[in-house]
Design a protein around this nucleic acid. Structure first.
Lengths: 114, 114
DNA sequence: TCGACAATTAGCTAAACGTCTATTTATGAG
DNA sequence: CTCATAAATAGACGTTTAGCTAATTGTCGA
Protein backbone atom coordinates (compact mmCIF):
# COMPACT_ATOMS: atom_id res chain seq x y z
CA UNK A 1 0.00 0.00 0.00
CA UNK A 2 1.44 3.38 -0.96
CA UNK A 3 1.53 6.46 1.21
CA UNK A 4 -2.03 7.29 0.32
CA UNK A 5 -2.54 10.10 2.77
CA UNK A 6 -0.75 12.77 0.80
CA UNK A 7 -2.20 11.43 -2.41
CA UNK A 8 -5.72 11.66 -1.08
CA UNK A 9 -5.17 15.11 0.38
CA UNK A 10 -4.01 16.51 -2.91
CA UNK A 11 -6.39 14.52 -5.10
CA UNK A 12 -9.48 15.56 -3.16
CA UNK A 13 -8.23 19.09 -2.96
CA UNK A 14 -7.72 19.13 -6.71
CA UNK A 15 -11.26 17.87 -7.27
CA UNK A 16 -12.79 20.49 -4.97
CA UNK A 17 -12.84 23.15 -7.68
CA UNK A 18 -15.28 23.36 -10.59
CA UNK A 19 -12.64 24.55 -13.05
CA UNK A 20 -10.40 21.62 -12.26
CA UNK A 21 -13.27 19.13 -12.40
CA UNK A 22 -14.23 20.55 -15.79
CA UNK A 23 -10.68 19.97 -16.98
CA UNK A 24 -10.86 16.37 -15.79
CA UNK A 25 -14.20 15.96 -17.56
CA UNK A 26 -12.76 17.41 -20.75
CA UNK A 27 -9.75 15.11 -20.62
CA UNK A 28 -11.95 12.02 -20.51
CA UNK A 29 -12.49 12.76 -24.20
CA UNK A 30 -8.77 12.61 -24.85
CA UNK A 31 -5.53 14.51 -24.35
CA UNK A 32 -5.32 18.20 -25.19
CA UNK A 33 -2.82 21.08 -25.13
CA UNK A 34 -2.97 23.79 -22.48
CA UNK A 35 -4.41 26.45 -24.74
CA UNK A 36 -7.33 24.26 -25.82
CA UNK A 37 -8.08 23.31 -22.25
CA UNK A 38 -7.99 26.94 -21.11
CA UNK A 39 -10.31 28.16 -23.89
CA UNK A 40 -13.70 27.63 -22.15
CA UNK A 41 -12.74 29.48 -18.99
CA UNK A 42 -13.11 33.16 -18.31
CA UNK A 43 -9.74 33.41 -16.65
CA UNK A 44 -6.21 34.50 -17.49
CA UNK A 45 -3.80 31.84 -18.69
CA UNK A 46 -1.49 32.19 -15.66
CA UNK A 47 -4.46 31.55 -13.37
CA UNK A 48 -5.46 28.55 -15.43
CA UNK A 49 -1.92 27.23 -15.33
CA UNK A 50 -2.08 27.23 -11.56
CA UNK A 51 -5.09 24.94 -11.75
CA UNK A 52 -3.22 22.65 -14.11
CA UNK A 53 -0.31 22.60 -11.72
CA UNK A 54 -2.60 21.57 -8.87
CA UNK A 55 -4.01 18.78 -11.02
CA UNK A 56 -0.57 17.60 -12.04
CA UNK A 57 0.79 17.72 -8.49
CA UNK A 58 -2.15 15.58 -7.40
CA UNK A 59 -1.26 13.01 -10.05
CA UNK A 60 -4.73 13.20 -11.59
CA UNK A 61 -3.26 14.38 -14.86
CA UNK A 62 0.06 13.88 -16.61
CA UNK A 63 1.60 16.45 -18.91
CA UNK A 64 4.32 16.35 -21.46
CA UNK A 65 5.93 19.21 -23.28
CA UNK A 66 6.82 18.86 -26.91
CA UNK A 67 8.10 21.88 -28.75
CA UNK A 68 6.19 24.86 -27.47
CA UNK A 69 2.99 23.03 -26.57
CA UNK A 70 2.29 21.03 -23.44
CA UNK A 71 -0.12 18.14 -23.80
CA UNK A 72 -2.23 17.04 -20.85
CA UNK A 73 -3.84 13.66 -20.34
CA UNK A 74 -5.87 12.00 -17.62
CA UNK A 75 -4.24 9.58 -15.19
CA UNK A 76 -7.04 7.10 -14.66
CA UNK A 77 -5.19 5.11 -12.03
CA UNK A 78 -4.97 8.01 -9.64
CA UNK A 79 -8.62 8.77 -10.28
CA UNK A 80 -9.38 5.12 -9.48
CA UNK A 81 -7.33 5.23 -6.32
CA UNK A 82 -9.32 8.21 -5.10
CA UNK A 83 -12.63 6.59 -6.01
CA UNK A 84 -11.56 3.47 -4.16
CA UNK A 85 -11.14 5.33 -0.89
CA UNK A 86 -14.75 6.47 -0.99
CA UNK A 87 -16.01 3.08 -2.15
CA UNK A 88 -14.17 1.48 0.72
CA UNK A 89 -15.76 3.74 3.32
CA UNK A 90 -19.18 3.07 1.88
CA UNK A 91 -18.53 -0.65 2.03
CA UNK A 92 -17.50 -0.44 5.67
CA UNK A 93 -20.63 1.54 6.42
CA UNK A 94 -22.85 -0.97 4.63
CA UNK A 95 -21.24 -3.86 6.48
CA UNK A 96 -21.96 -2.08 9.71
CA UNK A 97 -25.55 -1.37 8.70
CA UNK A 98 -26.02 -5.04 7.81
CA UNK A 99 -24.66 -6.23 11.15
CA UNK A 100 -26.89 -3.75 12.90
CA UNK A 101 -29.96 -4.97 11.02
CA UNK A 102 -29.14 -8.59 11.85
CA UNK A 103 -28.65 -7.72 15.48
CA UNK A 104 -31.99 -5.96 15.69
CA UNK A 105 -33.73 -8.80 13.92
CA UNK A 106 -32.24 -11.34 16.33
CA UNK A 107 -33.21 -9.22 19.31
CA UNK A 108 -36.78 -8.99 18.08
CA UNK A 109 -37.19 -12.72 17.42
CA UNK A 110 -35.65 -13.33 20.84
CA UNK A 111 -38.30 -11.11 22.39
CA UNK A 112 -41.02 -13.04 20.57
CA UNK A 113 -40.02 -16.25 22.33
CA UNK A 114 -39.65 -14.70 25.74
CA UNK B 1 -30.54 15.91 -11.24
CA UNK B 2 -29.76 18.21 -8.35
CA UNK B 3 -27.45 21.17 -8.37
CA UNK B 4 -24.43 18.95 -7.94
CA UNK B 5 -21.77 21.58 -8.46
CA UNK B 6 -21.94 23.09 -4.98
CA UNK B 7 -22.35 19.62 -3.50
CA UNK B 8 -19.23 18.36 -5.20
CA UNK B 9 -17.26 21.47 -4.31
CA UNK B 10 -18.00 21.11 -0.65
CA UNK B 11 -17.85 17.32 -0.52
CA UNK B 12 -14.44 17.12 -2.17
CA UNK B 13 -13.21 19.98 -0.06
CA UNK B 14 -14.41 18.20 3.07
CA UNK B 15 -12.57 15.04 2.04
CA UNK B 16 -9.32 16.89 1.35
CA UNK B 17 -8.27 16.85 4.99
CA UNK B 18 -6.91 13.86 6.92
CA UNK B 19 -8.75 14.75 10.12
CA UNK B 20 -12.06 14.91 8.31
CA UNK B 21 -11.41 11.68 6.43
CA UNK B 22 -10.57 10.01 9.72
CA UNK B 23 -13.90 11.17 11.11
CA UNK B 24 -15.68 9.68 8.09
CA UNK B 25 -13.76 6.43 8.57
CA UNK B 26 -14.70 6.35 12.24
CA UNK B 27 -18.36 6.96 11.47
CA UNK B 28 -18.51 3.94 9.16
CA UNK B 29 -18.46 1.95 12.43
CA UNK B 30 -21.55 3.78 13.67
CA UNK B 31 -22.78 7.09 15.02
CA UNK B 32 -20.90 8.85 17.81
CA UNK B 33 -21.07 12.02 19.91
CA UNK B 34 -18.74 14.94 19.29
CA UNK B 35 -16.53 14.30 22.30
CA UNK B 36 -15.86 10.69 21.32
CA UNK B 37 -15.07 11.69 17.76
CA UNK B 38 -12.70 14.41 18.90
CA UNK B 39 -10.80 12.16 21.32
CA UNK B 40 -8.14 10.76 18.94
CA UNK B 41 -7.06 14.14 17.64
CA UNK B 42 -4.39 16.35 19.08
CA UNK B 43 -6.44 19.48 18.61
CA UNK B 44 -8.67 21.78 20.61
CA UNK B 45 -12.40 21.12 20.58
CA UNK B 46 -13.25 24.39 18.82
CA UNK B 47 -10.87 23.47 16.00
CA UNK B 48 -12.40 20.04 15.77
CA UNK B 49 -15.88 21.51 15.73
CA UNK B 50 -14.95 23.52 12.67
CA UNK B 51 -14.03 20.29 10.90
CA UNK B 52 -17.36 18.80 11.91
CA UNK B 53 -19.10 21.89 10.57
CA UNK B 54 -17.33 21.49 7.23
CA UNK B 55 -18.41 17.85 7.10
CA UNK B 56 -21.98 18.72 7.98
CA UNK B 57 -22.16 21.58 5.49
CA UNK B 58 -20.97 19.19 2.81
CA UNK B 59 -23.79 16.80 3.64
CA UNK B 60 -21.36 13.94 4.25
CA UNK B 61 -22.49 13.69 7.85
CA UNK B 62 -25.72 14.46 9.66
CA UNK B 63 -25.87 15.56 13.25
CA UNK B 64 -28.59 15.75 15.81
CA UNK B 65 -28.48 17.33 19.20
CA UNK B 66 -30.19 15.67 22.10
CA UNK B 67 -29.73 17.18 25.51
CA UNK B 68 -26.20 18.42 25.74
CA UNK B 69 -24.67 15.89 23.36
CA UNK B 70 -24.63 16.06 19.60
CA UNK B 71 -24.63 12.75 17.76
CA UNK B 72 -23.01 12.49 14.34
CA UNK B 73 -23.68 9.88 11.70
CA UNK B 74 -22.53 9.24 8.16
CA UNK B 75 -24.70 10.21 5.21
CA UNK B 76 -23.95 7.39 2.80
CA UNK B 77 -25.99 8.85 -0.04
CA UNK B 78 -23.88 11.96 -0.25
CA UNK B 79 -20.77 9.83 -0.11
CA UNK B 80 -22.20 7.75 -2.94
CA UNK B 81 -23.01 10.82 -4.98
CA UNK B 82 -19.43 11.98 -4.70
CA UNK B 83 -18.07 8.57 -5.60
CA UNK B 84 -20.38 8.46 -8.59
CA UNK B 85 -18.87 11.60 -10.07
CA UNK B 86 -15.44 10.00 -10.14
CA UNK B 87 -16.76 6.67 -11.40
CA UNK B 88 -18.54 8.51 -14.17
CA UNK B 89 -15.41 10.27 -15.34
CA UNK B 90 -13.51 7.02 -15.31
CA UNK B 91 -16.23 5.40 -17.37
CA UNK B 92 -16.11 8.19 -19.93
CA UNK B 93 -12.36 7.85 -20.13
CA UNK B 94 -12.57 4.08 -20.59
CA UNK B 95 -15.15 4.47 -23.33
CA UNK B 96 -12.83 6.84 -25.08
CA UNK B 97 -9.89 4.50 -24.68
CA UNK B 98 -11.97 1.67 -26.14
CA UNK B 99 -13.02 3.71 -29.15
CA UNK B 100 -9.42 4.73 -29.68
CA UNK B 101 -8.26 1.13 -29.53
CA UNK B 102 -10.90 0.08 -32.03
CA UNK B 103 -9.96 2.92 -34.34
CA UNK B 104 -6.31 1.99 -34.27
CA UNK B 105 -7.10 -1.65 -34.86
CA UNK B 106 -9.25 -0.76 -37.88
CA UNK B 107 -6.56 1.48 -39.28
CA UNK B 108 -3.96 -1.25 -38.99
CA UNK B 109 -6.08 -3.93 -40.65
CA UNK B 110 -6.85 -1.41 -43.38
CA UNK B 111 -3.16 -0.90 -43.95
CA UNK B 112 -2.67 -4.67 -44.22
CA UNK B 113 -4.97 -4.84 -47.24
CA UNK B 114 -3.50 -1.80 -48.94
C1' DT C 1 16.20 36.19 -39.07
C1' DC C 2 12.12 37.97 -37.21
C1' DG C 3 7.63 38.06 -35.63
C1' DA C 4 3.79 35.47 -33.74
C1' DC C 5 2.45 32.34 -30.55
C1' DA C 6 2.37 28.75 -26.46
C1' DA C 7 3.69 28.63 -22.17
C1' DT C 8 5.91 30.30 -18.00
C1' DT C 9 7.58 33.21 -14.20
C1' DA C 10 7.29 36.91 -10.82
C1' DG C 11 4.88 39.26 -7.77
C1' DC C 12 0.60 41.51 -6.01
C1' DT C 13 -4.06 41.20 -3.51
C1' DA C 14 -8.23 39.54 -1.24
C1' DA C 15 -10.42 35.77 0.69
C1' DA C 16 -10.51 31.27 2.84
C1' DC C 17 -8.39 27.89 5.91
C1' DG C 18 -6.80 25.65 10.14
C1' DT C 19 -5.25 26.41 14.41
C1' DC C 20 -5.28 28.62 18.85
C1' DT C 21 -7.16 30.86 23.56
C1' DA C 22 -10.69 32.71 26.22
C1' DT C 23 -15.36 32.92 27.12
C1' DT C 24 -20.23 31.47 27.04
C1' DT C 25 -24.36 28.57 26.82
C1' DA C 26 -27.06 24.72 28.00
C1' DT C 27 -28.01 20.50 30.40
C1' DG C 28 -27.57 16.51 33.49
C1' DA C 29 -26.56 14.93 38.23
C1' DG C 30 -25.89 15.20 43.16
C1' DC D 1 -29.47 24.89 43.60
C1' DT D 2 -25.07 24.27 42.18
C1' DC D 3 -21.56 22.36 39.90
C1' DA D 4 -19.33 19.61 36.31
C1' DT D 5 -19.61 18.61 31.62
C1' DA D 6 -20.73 18.88 26.32
C1' DA D 7 -20.83 21.91 23.03
C1' DA D 8 -20.59 26.42 20.93
C1' DT D 9 -19.05 31.29 20.01
C1' DA D 10 -15.86 35.07 19.29
C1' DG D 11 -11.93 36.61 17.66
C1' DA D 12 -6.86 36.59 16.68
C1' DC D 13 -3.09 34.92 13.70
C1' DG D 14 -0.20 32.86 10.12
C1' DT D 15 -0.62 30.14 5.77
C1' DT D 16 -2.56 28.84 1.54
C1' DT D 17 -5.45 29.73 -2.33
C1' DA D 18 -7.25 31.81 -6.50
C1' DG D 19 -7.30 35.39 -9.09
C1' DC D 20 -4.90 39.43 -11.48
C1' DT D 21 -1.15 42.14 -14.52
C1' DA D 22 3.26 42.59 -16.46
C1' DA D 23 7.22 40.73 -18.22
C1' DT D 24 9.96 36.56 -20.02
C1' DT D 25 11.20 32.30 -22.35
C1' DG D 26 11.31 29.16 -25.96
C1' DT D 27 9.82 27.48 -30.52
C1' DC D 28 7.67 27.47 -35.01
C1' DG D 29 7.04 29.36 -39.62
C1' DA D 30 7.48 32.83 -43.27
Amino acid sequence: MENNLRHLDSAFHALADPTRRAVIARLTAGAAPVKTLAEPFDMGLPSFLKHLRVLEDSGLILTEKSGRTRTCRLCASRLAETERWIANQRQLWEDHADRLANYIENQMSGEDTQ
